[in-house]
C-alpha cells in the first residue's frame, strides 16, 4: 500500500508531466480511465496558474497572442511550479523563461516588457509598510550618521532595461492596432524605479546618475559612502526618496544583510 507521501509525489509528477502516470495504478478506474480522471486536476492546475500569469503579464499576453501565451505558460508551469500557496508571488522567473524561448527571438524586447510587468505586479501586491519619516532620524547620534543604511519599501523595484519596456507596455495596453508603430523600440536602454504610491503603482524613468545612486542606496551602502561620492545631487536624490515614500526603515548596524530583491 503506498504511503500518503508516495501518493502525493506521484500525483505531482503526473500533474506536471502527463507522461508520468505511475500514480494511475493507485486510482480506481471504471468506465472512466484513471488517466482521464487525473486530467481533470491537471487542467484545473494549468488553468489556475495560466490565469495567474496572465493577470501579471497582460502586455506580454497581447504581444505574443493568447494561444502562444497558453503554450509558453504550460511549459513554464512544468519546469517552474509555484512554491507558495499565495499566487501573487508566482511567476517572477517568467521573463527570463520567455526570453530564452527560441520562438520569441523575433521579439527581443519581450523579456524586458515582462520584467517591467513583474515590477508592476510586485508593487501592487507588496506588503504594506509605513514610509520612513525623516524626523525618525532626529534621535540618531551624529557619530552614527555615516553608518546609516536604509531599507527600501517592499514595493520598490529598480529596472535597468535594454528596451523602453514601459513605453511598449503602455502602448500595447492602450489597445490600438498600430500601437507599436509609434514606439522607437531600439531607442536605447531605460532605467526605471517602480513602486506603489497610495493606491496606485508608479513607474519613473531615471538618469544614469540617479539610478546608480538608488542602486547603492537600496543595495545597503552607508550614508557615509554615499556622501563620499562628492556629487552635489546626492542630497537631493536622498531627500526625494523620503518625499516619495520609497524608504521603509534604517539601521545603524554594520551587518550587510539588507534584503535585496532589487533587480
Amino acid at each position: 500500500m503506498p504511503t500518503l507521501r508516495e501518493i502525493q509525489r506521484g500525483f505531482r509528477d503526473s500533474l506536471l508531466d502527463s507522461g508520468r502516470e505511475a500514480i494511475a495504478g493507485a486510482i480506481a478506474g471504471d468506465e472512466i480511465a484513471a488517466v482521464d480522471r487525473l486530467c481533470i486536476h491537471r487542467n484545473t492546475m494549468r488553468s489556475v496558474l495560466t490565469g495567474s500569469l496572465r493577470l501579471s503579464y497582460p502586455a506580454v499576453d497581447r504581444l505574443v497572442g493568447g494561444d502562444f501565451f497558453d503554450m509558453a505558460a504550460a511549459r513554464f508551469i512544468r519546469t517552474h511550479p509555484p512554491v507558495s500557496g499565495c499566487l501573487d508571488d508566482y511567476g517572477e522567473a517568467f521573463a527570463a523563461f520567455l526570453q530564452a524561448m527560441p520562438e520569441t527571438a523575433g521579439l527581443p524586447y519581450l523579456g524586458d516588457v515582462a520584467r517591467y510587468e513583474w515590477a508592476l505586479t510586485r508593487a501592487a501586491h507588496a506588503e504594506d509598510r509605513a514610509a520612513l519619516d525623516l524626523m525618525a532620524l532626529g534621535d540618531i547620534a551624529p557619530a552614527l550618521h555615516d553608518g546609516l543604511r536604509f531599507m527600501p519599501h517592499p514595493s520598490v523595484s529598480l529596472l535597468d532595461l535594454d528596451y523602453p519596456a514601459d513605453a511598449i507596455a503602455d502602448a500595447v495596453m492602450a489597445g490600438a492596432d498600430d500601437a507599436m508603430a509609434g514606439i522607437a523600440v531600439s531607442s536605447g536602454p531605460v532605467r526605471l524605479v517602480v513602486d506603489r504610491a497610495g493606491d496606485g503603482v508608479r513607474s519613473e524613468r531615471l538618469e544614469a546618475d540617479a539610478f546608480r545612486f538608488l542602486q547603492a542606496l537600496f543595495g545597503g551602502q552607508t550614508l557615509g559612502a554615499l556622501a563620499a561620492w562628492g556629487d552635489s545631487d546626492v542630497a537631493r536624490y536622498l531627500a526625494e526618496q523620503f518625499t516619495k515614500g520609497r524608504l521603509a526603515g534604517f539601521t545603524t548596524e554594520p551587518a550587510a544583510s539588507l534584503s535585496g530583491s532589487l533587480s
Binding site: L4, Q8, F11, R12, L15, T44, M45, P82, V83
Partner: peptide, 22 residues
Amino acid sequence: AWSVVDGTYLADLLPLPMTEEA
C-alpha cells in the same frame, strides 16, 4: 484536500486517499 508536496504548490484541491494514515 492537499495541494503541497515537497514545497511545490499544485494550485488545485487534490484528493486524499481516505486511509487511517491520511
